[in-house]
């Protein structure tokens, strides 16, 4: 079919708009990368756009030798590790019983409401802080992992996936004498790998990106996970983080801007690394969660 003149005009227009939008979403990240590899003076003068000026690795060598950066990176890895274990376990063992019908779990309705209500109403910042203080979790990795281990969205997501697993499989297992635990681990989990991969990614991104809880539940900066640490150095520009004069000298050489950019980029790097997988799964995740239960 021959395209009309109007159609061709529209397609060119449409194409240009969409491509510029895509560029607009990528440029800031590329700019940061370019600044991080540039010399301090070029960056400070604003000469860097999308390509490094006076290419240098000095801001990266500086950042990777900074004790506070490295220690917060370690806290982040710890958080990721424990967070994944806690959240995945809780999500799996909670989604399974809730995916059962009323016939198998008679008070399912009550349980569901207890969980759903937390999505409708919350105690707010101050009472939550006080509870976490009372439980003695302040300044421990537990404060960043335990209170958020129950995520009702993830539970619903997996619950809906479990619901679509054919009942006949479970009945056959029961006849063979399997209990609920065996059924969950031997039948449900192997069949749910795509859903579990999606949830694993979501949980990882959540933990990597979370910064506010670290900021308020950790009193000592050396306990900050990376995102909280970045919040304080990149956004708050708190000078108390610079501990000795040697560091100040070094900082004036590499210039704050390139060091900042290097830290921002390193902070975003894990997300960029898992991004190809993220985007494959997250459309699936969205549709998964919206299946009517």
């Amino acid at each position: 079919m021959k395209k009309s003149k109007g159609r061709i005009f529209f397609e060119i227009y449409n194409y240009s708009i969409l491509v510029s939008m895509a560029a607009l979403c990528l440029f800031p990240m590329i700019h940061v990368l370019a600044v991080s590899f540039s010399s301090g003076s070029a960056a400070a003068a604003g000469w860097v756009s999308l390509w490094p000026v006076d290419f240098t690795l000095s801001s990266y060598t500086f950042v990777l030798e900074k004790a506070d950066f490295i220690s917060s990176l370690m806290v982040s890895f710890q958080r990721l590790f424990w967070g994944l274990i806690a959240s995945l376990t809780i999500t799996i063992i909670t989604a399974y019983p809730l995916s059962k019908g009323k016939r198998d779990l008679r008070i399912r309705g009550i349980y569901i409401w207890v969980f759903i209500f937390t999505m409708l109403f919350n105690g707010g910042l101050i009472p939550t802080y006080m509870i976490i203080k009372e439980t003695g979790l302040l300044d421990s990795i537990g404060a960043l992992v335990i209170p958020c281990a129950v995520n009702v969205y993830f539970i619903i997501l997996l619950m809906n996936f479990f619901k679509n697993i054919p009942k006949s499989l479970e009945e056959a297992a029961f006849i063979d004498g399997a209990g609920h635990w065996t059924t969950l681990f031997k039948i449900y989990l192997p069949l749910s790998l795509p859903a579990l991969a999606t949830i694993t990614l979501f949980i990882s991104v959540f933990h990597w990106n979370s910064w506010f809880d670290g900021l308020i539940y950790m009193n000592r900066p050396e306990n900050y996970p990376l995102s909280s640490f970045l919040q304080t150095v990149v956004i708050q520009r708190d000078l108390t983080f610079i501990t000795d004069t040697r560091e100040i000298e070094m900082l004036s050489k590499v210039d704050g801007k390139t060091v900042k950019s290097a830290q921002i980029f390193l902070g975003a790097l894990p997300i960029l690394a898992v991004y190809p997988f993220l985007q494959r799964y997250f459309v699936k995740g969205i549709t998964l969660g919206s299946v009517k239960g």
Binding site: I90, V114, F115, T118, F121, N122, G123, G124, I126, P127, T128, M130, I131, I132, T135, I146, P147, A149, V150
Partner: peptide
């Protein structure tokens, strides 16, 4: 967990 960390704060209101 949700009784402690979600319903607890509601009491804390």
């Amino acid at each position: 967990l949700i009784i402690i960390f979600n319903y607890g704060p509601m009491v804390g209101i």
